[in-house]
Simulated assay, not measured.
Amino acid sequence: MAKRGQRRTSARSRRDVRQQTVTLPSIDSLGDVPAFADLRMDDAQRAAYQEFLATADNAEEMRAGFVVRLDRGFPLVATEGDVFRAEHAVAFAKQDAERDACLLPAVGDCVAVRRAPGHDMGVIERVLPRRTSFERWRGRSRGERQVLAANVDTILIVQALGADEVPLGRMARSLVLARDCGTEPAVVLTKADRRSGEELARDLGRVRRLVGEDVRVVATSSAAGEGVEEVRALVGPRRCAMILGESGAGKSTLLNALLGHEALATGAVRERDDRGRHTTVARVMVSLPGGGVIADVPGLRSLPLVGHERGLALAFPEVAAAAAECRFRDCTHEHEPGCAVRARHEAGEISDERLACYLALAEEMRASARALDPDVTI
């Protein structure tokens, strides 16, 4: 039987081999990478950084920076006046890879990074407090989540228009996640040139009835150059947005239009289901000319909702308020007597689109909670 020290050596060797086999793009080949000044370091992050410096070894080698790119988990960090690759400190390596995944540096994170004189690479020593954290459930238990981006101000929910009616379920799911992490959501409908004027007006009406009056909705056509400047206006200087959408939704095409050149690879969609392949393989941030910063992540096939009850209430506040007035605490708002939600719906105070999506997502969260913890009652 292998001894504990041997197991550790073996694990370290496998990690070293993996790092040697990963080919990372050169920094010189990366265009549109944000500079440190393009991103916003808030008061809480500054205070945490100063507190860390007060007790850090080799404090003169420390810099504040932002993780602006992750290539297969390898960070690119922008500090004041420099951009360089970095690795994780030993403290991160000691963390449980599953349980503490949310503590690892994510794209957009503000970090304390050490770079010794004469070294090409730095070492991320500390992740500073996150203003916002966009996370999704990773599986197994309610506590295991994956951070897709940190310190994001706006979530651009991207949905491609096609031959069929615009699907609302995925949009509502994204809206809940955006609200739950404290960001401002906006909906960007791409490929608007595929719909007639009447069809586009109908799609826009359904989307606006779903998301509500306080969520901005923009229809775009990168091919026709329409709506691009409206999207740019959503991401002002020193603000950070994240693009959220499935593969084939037109995220990379939209980003290229915002940048004004072909910076990101794009791919065709399959005709049989109008879905695309992954063209974004890294988590990247790009700086918009005259604007802020946008984070792009690989297209996500699924966005499971586990433990996002707060986000559901924030995304559908009038439904949540009515639900508190129902006669039964466990009312499903489908058939029980004394249901205030159905009463508000029948009075025209809750739209068909919002009620249908709320009920579907609420039931999904109840089912996931029961599956993870049979003793829970929702």
Rank of each mutant, 00 (worst) to 15 (best):
K251C: 01
A268Q: 13
A268V: 13
G245C: 05
E271V: 15
D274W: 08
L254R: 00
G245W: 08
E271Q: 15
G250V: 00
R270A: 12
S247A: 13
T253F: 02
T266Y: 04
L259N: 07
E271M: 14
R270F: 10
L264F: 08
E262R: 12
L255M: 14
E246L: 10
A257K: 08
S247P: 06
G248K: 00
D273H: 12
R272F: 11
L258R: 09
A249V: 07
A257C: 10
G267N: 05
G250N: 00
E246F: 07
L255I: 13
G250R: 02
A268H: 10
G245F: 06
K251E: 01
H261K: 13
G250L: 00
H261Q: 11
N256G: 04
L259E: 08
S247Y: 03
G267V: 08
A265F: 03
G248S: 02
G260E: 07
L255Q: 06
G267L: 09
A263Q: 14
E271S: 15
A249Y: 03
L254V: 05
E271L: 15
R272C: 11
A268T: 13
G250E: 00
S247T: 11
N256A: 04
R272Q: 15
L259T: 05
N256P: 05
D274N: 14
T266D: 05
N256Q: 04
A265D: 14
R270W: 06
N256C: 04
E246I: 06
K251G: 00
A265Q: 15
K251N: 02
L259S: 09
G248N: 02
G248T: 01
E271I: 14
S252V: 02
D274G: 08
N256E: 10
G250H: 00
V269C: 11
V269Y: 05
L259W: 01
E246C: 14
A263F: 07
K251M: 01
E246H: 15
G250C: 01
E262L: 07
N256T: 04
R270C: 04
A257E: 11
D274L: 12
D274R: 13
T253M: 04
D273R: 09
L255E: 09
R272G: 12
A249K: 02
L254E: 10
S247H: 02
R272K: 13
L259Y: 03
G250K: 00
S252K: 03
T253Y: 04
E271C: 13
G267D: 06
S247R: 00
L258N: 10
L258E: 07
L254I: 06
R272P: 05
T253E: 11
